[in-house]
Structures are given as structure tokens and as C-alpha cells.
Amino acid sequence: MSLKKKDLLGIKDMDAEEIGEILETAKSMKKLLLAGTKRTPHLQGKTVVTLFYENSTRTRLSFELASKYMGANAANITASGSSVAKGETLIDTGRTIDVMGTDVLVIRHPLSGAPHLLAQHVRASVVNAGDGMDEHPTQALLDLFTMREKKGRIEGLRVAIVGDVLHSRVARSNIWALQKLGASVCLAGPTTMMPREIERTGAAVFETAHEAVAGADVVMALRLQLERQKSGLFPSIREYSRFFGVDTGRLRLAKPDVLLMHPGPVNRGVELTSAVADADFSAIDEQVTNGVAVRMAILYLLARREN
């Protein structure tokens, strides 16, 4: 098994078969993790570099741990502590990392398309760890993995995604991914934070959270960037959480065995109440664990491509 393309830039350009392959491989990786095997030879002799132009806890750490668990040489660079702060261009930074013998370059960047640009200029495989409002493909893959693990399937699931869809790369990657695997997607969020022509994605779009959540197998709340309030997209956090916050009452409209998800970090009391975030139907911690397994699978499948 290996991936067809050099890079993993977005779910948009992947087919169901490639997604399935990553999810299958992640299953074995998770077994290793659960067995406590944190030293495998899968990536021995390989070098994985994470290049982060934005803050991140879970994504960066899970890539780093995934690399280390599989025996890779792992290094990370952040924008503030590197030549980026001295005004070096993305292409120049990427080439520098590339020619030091990097096999996989994991990038997070505030501007959409940055990983695509980088991928054109480096020999290493590029993994998109989140670019602007475009995609966060490894998040969607770990979300799919979690849903499949908990629900046994993706096809036929009804997944509600609630919140700021406009600015969310997690929402975009999930919209593409879920529909490729046969799930139906229901969106809800303030109309000022819903992209124009969103219906063309194939997702059903609602103006109230309860319509989207009704009958859902999975409810995914999106992180609200609180500073959006200042740009006038919604009047107050209080009003946002009243109309779009996911709480026990709203979740009662979903299927009885609903699964609650959130990409983290959570603004407690805003997009989720603590009561639901910590409930037994919440998969938030599981998502984080699965993130390591899925990223192990991705790194492994990309790194062995060259052999």
C-alpha cells in the first residue's frame, strides 16, 4: 500500500479509495498505539519536519509524536523562531528544509494554498496541516476514522456541522470527505458566516441549529474564533451561543446514539456547553488519540512511496 500522489494537500483532490487506504492503515497504527508500542521501525531513516506558521498544540504535537513513535528523525520549525521572521519567502524556506534531506514536510500556514505552492518547489512530500480557510485534511481523516470506529460506517450517516463554516478549514475538509464516502452533511451557522454558493457543495444548509441537528448521527461543533465578533459577523458571544451553541437540549433532537465531535480547542460555554463536551457521547478525547494514529498512517504511506 502507498499513496498515489507525492503530497497530501487536501481532501478535495483525493478519491474514496485513497481515503479508505489511509483509514485502513490508521487502524493498524491505532492497534500499535493501544498495545503501547511507541517505537516501531516504520520510518527508520526518514526525516519529518513540521513547519508551522500558526500556533498549534494538538496538530503539531501529534505529527511530532507520530514521527517519533515510528522511528523517524523529527524536527520542527515555527515561524517566529526562524528565518521566516527575517522575511524569507515560503519557497526559499521550503527549499532550505528540503535540501537538508527531509522526506516529509508538514506545513501549517495562515494563507490558503501555501502548501500547494510549497509542494511545487520541494522534492519532499508535503502534508497540509491546515492552510488558511482552505483545508485541514488530516483533521477530516481523523474525524472520519473516529466516526467509522464508533458507528461502524460512514456511508449513510447524517452529520451535522454547526458554526462558522465560512472561515473553517475543518468544515471544508469534512464537507468534501464525508460526501466522498457517502455521508450526508447538514450545515448550520450564522448566515453571515456561511460561504456564498455553499449549496453547490452538495451539503444541506439550514439557518437554525436545531434543523441541522435533527436526526443527526454525528454532531460536529466548529471552533468559534472569538475575534470574529469584532468584525461584525455576529453581535455577541452570548447571542451566538444562544442560537448555535450545542447543548443538551439541542442534542436531544439528534439520534439517541449521537456522537459529539469538536476539532478543538473548545471554547467552553460558547460552541459547546461543558456538560456535553464532557459527556460519554463526546468523542473529543478519542479524536485526539485517533489523530496520532491517522498521522502515523499518513506519514508512513507517504514516506514509503519513494521506496
Binding site: S112, G113, G132, M133, D134, P195, R196, E197, R200, T201
Partner: peptide
């Protein structure tokens, strides 16, 4: 331009 393509690319749209 703000529209389906800007949504697809995750780029900020100009209405």
C-alpha cells in the same frame, strides 16, 4: 471573486 470557486479554494471573496 466571492462564489463557489473562492469557497472551494478557501480564499477570501470580493463580492
Amino acid at each position: 471573486n466571492e462564489g463557489y470557486v473562492s469557497l472551494e479554494l478557501g480564499l477570501r471573496g470580493v463580492p
